[in-house]
Amino acid sequence: MNKNTTLLNIIISFTLLSACNLSLAEDSAPANASIENTEAKDNTKVENNSEAENKVYVIPTPQISRISALETSLKNRQLTHQLDTLEANGDPFLTLYQPSLTSSTQGCVIILHSDNEHPDWPDAVAPLRNALPEHSWCTISIEVPDITKRAEAVNTQISTQEDNSQAVELPNQDTVFSRILATIAKAQSNEIEVFALLGYKTGAAYALNFLANNSDTANALILIDIETPATTSHYSLAQQVRKIPQPILDYYINSNAGSSQFAMWRKQAANQRTEINNDFIQLDAVPDRANGKKSKQLLVQRVRGFLKQNTNQRDQRKTLPSVKKGLFYESP
Rank of each mutant, 00 (worst) to 15 (best):
D115P: 07
I110G: 02
Q166M: 08
W137K: 12
P92R: 12
R150L: 09
Q106G: 09
D146R: 00
Q173S: 04
D174Q: 06
N172V: 02
V109F: 06
A126W: 10
E87D: 11
P145H: 05
S103T: 15
V154C: 03
S136M: 13
A131M: 12
L86M: 05
I142V: 10
L94V: 09
H118L: 11
N164F: 13
P99M: 10
L170W: 00
I158S: 09
E134R: 15
E162Y: 10
T175G: 01
H135L: 14
S103Q: 15
K149H: 11
N89Q: 09
L132K: 14
I140F: 02
G90S: 10
N130M: 13
V125N: 01
Q157R: 06
A88E: 00
T156S: 11
C108M: 08
I111G: 04
A153H: 13
D84C: 14
P127F: 15
L94C: 11
C108D: 10
N116T: 03
V125M: 07
D174F: 06
A88R: 02
G90N: 06
D163W: 01
F177S: 00
D120S: 15
E169F: 07
L170E: 06
W121P: 04
S165T: 05
D84Y: 13
S141D: 08
P92E: 12
